[in-house]
Computed example of a mutant assay.
Amino acid sequence: MPTILITGGHGGIGLECSKHLAAHYSANLLLAGRSLERLEPVALELARTYGVKVTTLELDTSSLASVRAAAARCHALLNDGTIDSLQAILCNAGARILGVNYSVDGYEETFATNHLGHFLLLELLIDRLAKNGRVVFTASGTHDPETVDGKLVGEAVEPDAMMLANDGKDGRKPISAGKRYSTSKLCNVLTAYELDRRLRRSGSAITTLAFDPGSTPGTGFLRAMPAPLRWLSKTAFFYRFQKRLGITMGTIGFSGASLARLAADPAFAESSGKYFQSNDGRMIEKQSSAVSYDEARALKLWNDSKRLVHLRPDEDCTLLR
């Protein structure tokens, strides 16, 4: 039975996606996350409830060494038959980090977690994806500065990988946490589209999609915020207030199910290079930001990302050249 790899598949939208994949598509799962202690109980419960095979993979997307170790482990699991063919890779894990922190590789942590780790993971694993496989990026409407989402969180800045990786260094004033987050999500969309172009040129039938789950209370996105704000975010009043402002609204259940559909539903097999959004109980295809379609920016981001992750010649997948 095909296996779907999902980063952050043990909590929030990722967990709801995992449940939906197991319940409605009978998919085996490879749950990737930083803590095996958190992953293992979720894997056991999913396997017991839905009768599918669930394997865990230790992976911290903010660490290049962790990504490489996880990719090597995934190759080994495929080679020895522990997991069946890899049908989809869901780049779902992400974080909004307050304050300026740096990864073990010395890169700004939001950018490292949300973009660089998934970029490297795909370079290392996409050649093991099924011929009709899928890649789905969990992006965010905040990437678009023309939307209420983008304006409120912080308008995305230029998606310059070198600048973003070294934000706040050498005495330079760092950009805000909101702008770091929205720009990292712009990088997700740019990468999704560039990946699609590269796969099309290589003749691949792999489908690549970007997905905005909407503002989704209860996902842990606000875990660094004060307790009163975290409580308020879960109330019906706050949901209605955000909706009235024009914020794109999602729920854990619907957004998780939508992510699962994009990963496995045959209806999306011909939708490569497109952007979908969960908004108030509907999943719709829509245009992403104007900048996200800039092929020159996407190419620069791709090439700079290869340099930042120190991609070796033997790791440079022929499908993506």
Rank of each mutant, 00 (worst) to 15 (best):
215 S>V: 11
256 G>C: 00
144 D>F: 01
194 E>A: 08
202 S>V: 02
160 D>I: 00
67 V>G: 10
250 G>I: 09
321 R>H: 14
200 R>N: 07
93 A>P: 03
50 Y>I: 03
148 V>Q: 10
307 R>A: 15
239 Y>T: 15
275 Y>R: 04
31 L>T: 02
79 N>H: 12
234 K>C: 11
220 G>P: 09
146 E>S: 15
125 L>M: 12
44 L>M: 11
28 N>P: 05
312 R>M: 13
272 S>P: 04
276 F>Y: 15
206 I>C: 08
20 H>S: 12
58 E>Q: 15
274 K>A: 12
310 H>S: 13
210 A>W: 05
111 F>V: 00
241 F>L: 15
316 D>I: 06
82 T>M: 06
163 M>L: 11
117 G>N: 11
20 H>P: 00
157 V>K: 00
195 L>G: 07
74 C>M: 13
19 K>H: 15
143 H>V: 04
224 A>E: 15
26 S>V: 05
309 V>T: 00
223 R>L: 08
146 E>H: 10
32 A>M: 07
174 P>H: 01
60 D>E: 14
307 R>E: 13
64 L>F: 07
120 L>D: 12
229 L>G: 07
273 G>V: 09
43 A>E: 12
283 M>V: 13
227 A>C: 01
168 G>R: 00
65 A>T: 14
84 D>A: 13
28 N>G: 12
312 R>D: 11
131 K>T: 12
34 R>C: 08
177 A>M: 06
50 Y>D: 03
155 E>T: 13
120 L>A: 10
259 L>W: 03
140 S>C: 06
113 T>Y: 01
31 L>G: 03
200 R>G: 04
208 T>M: 05
248 T>H: 10
186 L>D: 03
129 L>D: 05
153 V>C: 08
214 G>Q: 14
